[in-house]
């Protein structure tokens, strides 16, 4: 039952030492760039760079190994689904057709399709190292301060920090409720038939959600008593000023984002073609 999740590792590396706000800006700009571009050269360069940064962070393989399997599975399913639904998508995008192998019916493997699916794969691969790194190297306590720093309303930033704070508690509640339900013979596993399983699920959800609603009332009463939201701004205990390394990281990612946008749209098309 105990699921692994990506959590802060608290090591000491150049990546860990960056402030949360700098890492957040880097991550956002990086993801947006990766979303926009379909230029293989940019994607390859970004992938290489992200792996270098990943290496620099010295995070342990065991800290993120479990997500890699999930990601790989999802990757494969997605790639297969793309081919099944649209085997000639690449031909449509690149406007040419080089058949390699004919399978059955409308399914022909074309060089364009392989190239297109390679690009799709690269687009995910480019974001994943930095996303994992962001989660492993950012202290959740500092995260809310970073959100506020980049311009998110502090109440929303505080809501995010509440969410991070209460995920472990709610997971524990969920486990306790579901164990006690199982002890009373309420089976949630695949041995039950679907309608019964849904019904059993509801008997866990009801106490979990009703107790959470009570918890919301309790926490908001406590915050009200402490005058939360009275000021227009608030300060953060975990907030740190930008150091040289932070400016450097933000500067680099801005340059990369700009370069990638220029290279991608230089020839007027979002797709880079080798055909």
């Amino acid at each position: 039952m105990r699921a692994r999740m990506l959590t802060f590792t608290g090591q000491n590396s150049p990546v860990h030492r960056l402030t949360g706000a700098a890492k957040l800006i880097v991550f956002i700009l990086w993801s947006v760039s990766a979303m926009i571009t379909y230029d293989t050269r940019c994607l390859l360069a970004m992938l290489l760079l992200s792996l270098v940064v990943f290496r620099m962070s010295r995070v342990k393989f065991s800290d993120y190994a479990f997500v890699l399997y999930v990601i790989l599975l999802f990757f494969m399913l997605n790639q297969i689904a793309i081919f099944v639904f649209s085997p000639l998508e690449g031909t449509r995008i690149y406007g040419s057709r080089h058949d390699l192998v004919h399978l059955v019916g409308r399914y022909t493997v074309t060089a364009e399709q392989l190239f297109y699916q390679l690009n799709v794969a690269l687009k995910y691969a480019v974001v994943i190292p930095l996303a994992i790194l962001f989660l492993l190297t950012t202290d959740p306590g500092e995260f809310a301060a970073s959100l506020n720093r980049i311009g998110v309303n502090y109440k929303i930033a505080y809501a995010v920090s509440l969410a991070l704070r209460y995920i472990p508690d709610i997971q524990r509640d969920y486990e306790q409720i579901s164990f006690s339900a199982q002890a009373r013979g309420i089976d949630l596993s695949r041995r039950e038939k679907l309608p019964k399983r849904v019904k059993n699920m509801i008997s866990i959800l009801t106490p979990l959600i009703l107790s959470s609603i009570e918890r919301i009332e309790r926490i908001s009463a406590a915050m009200e008593l402490r005058g939360f939201g009275a000021g227009r701004r608030r300060t953060w205990f975990r907030s740190r000023p930008f150091a040289f390394a932070d400016w450097l990281a933000v500067g680099c990612v801005c340059a990369i984002a700009a370069a990638s946008a220029v290279i991608t749209f230089y020839d007027g098309s979002r797709f880079y073609s080798i055909f």
Binding site: N153, K155, A159, S161, L162, A163, Y174, I209, S220, M223
Partner: peptide, 22 residues
């Protein structure tokens, strides 16, 4: 006061945590 009420802020926080777990 300005913007979100306290109960909304807390509901967003706890609701998001529940969303994650469920």
């Amino acid at each position: 006061r300005n913007g979100l009420s306290i109960i909304t802020v807390v509901a967003i926080g706890i609701g998001s945590a529940l969303f994650v777990i469920l």
